Amino acid sequence: MSWKQVKNDALVACRRNFCLCHLFKDLKMEAHHIIQQSEGGDDTFDNAIPLCFDCHGDMRSYDKKHPKGTKKN
């Protein structure tokens, strides 16, 4: 299955109202690899988590391999 289909399935399954903050985010969501591909993660439903833009930024802002957001100094 393609990552595009996995992302779609994850967003449908959560009904666009589950992420770390548990708020309804409608179209402001994206899917995230739980275990990054660079670390051996695969493009499967079990390795995908739907996150809103804010939670995705908070989760990965300190990862130099997958930066999202700006780290505070």
Rank of each mutant, 00 (worst) to 15 (best):
G57K: 13
F24P: 05
R15S: 11
D43R: 08
D26F: 13
P50I: 00
C19R: 01
L27G: 13
K71I: 12
R60H: 15
I49N: 02
K28N: 08
K64E: 11
T44I: 09
L11K: 12
Q37L: 12
F45I: 14
A48I: 04
C21D: 04
F53I: 15
D63W: 05
V12D: 10
K64C: 07
F45W: 12
W3K: 04
D43W: 07
H22F: 08
D9K: 12
L11A: 12
D9H: 08
S2F: 07
D46A: 15
R15I: 03
R60P: 00
T70L: 07
C52M: 06
G40I: 02
D42M: 12
G40Q: 05
R60N: 15
D63C: 06
D42K: 13
W3M: 02
V6D: 00
D54V: 15
F24R: 13
L27Q: 13
N73C: 07
C19D: 14
I34W: 03
K71P: 08
Q36C: 10
L51P: 02
N17A: 06
C19N: 03
H56M: 01
A13I: 05
K4I: 08
F18R: 11
K71F: 11
E39F: 09
D58V: 05
A48T: 01
T44C: 04
Q5R: 15
W3D: 03
V6C: 06
D42A: 09
K25I: 05
E39T: 06
L51F: 06
V12C: 07
D9P: 00
K64H: 12
K64R: 14
E30P: 01
W3A: 00
N17I: 11
C55A: 05
A48Y: 00
N47M: 01
Y62A: 10
P67I: 04
I34D: 01
K72F: 13
E39H: 13
D46M: 08
L51G: 01
R16V: 05
L27V: 12
C21F: 04
H33G: 01
K7T: 10
C14F: 08
N73A: 14
C52I: 04
K28P: 00
M1D: 11
M59V: 09
C55E: 02
L23D: 13
G41L: 06
C52W: 04
L23H: 11
C52F: 04
F18V: 09
D58S: 08
Q5C: 06
C14P: 00
Q5G: 10
M29T: 15
T70M: 10
C14D: 11
G69V: 00
H66N: 10
Q36N: 09
F24E: 12
F18W: 09
A31E: 02
Q37K: 11
K64Y: 08
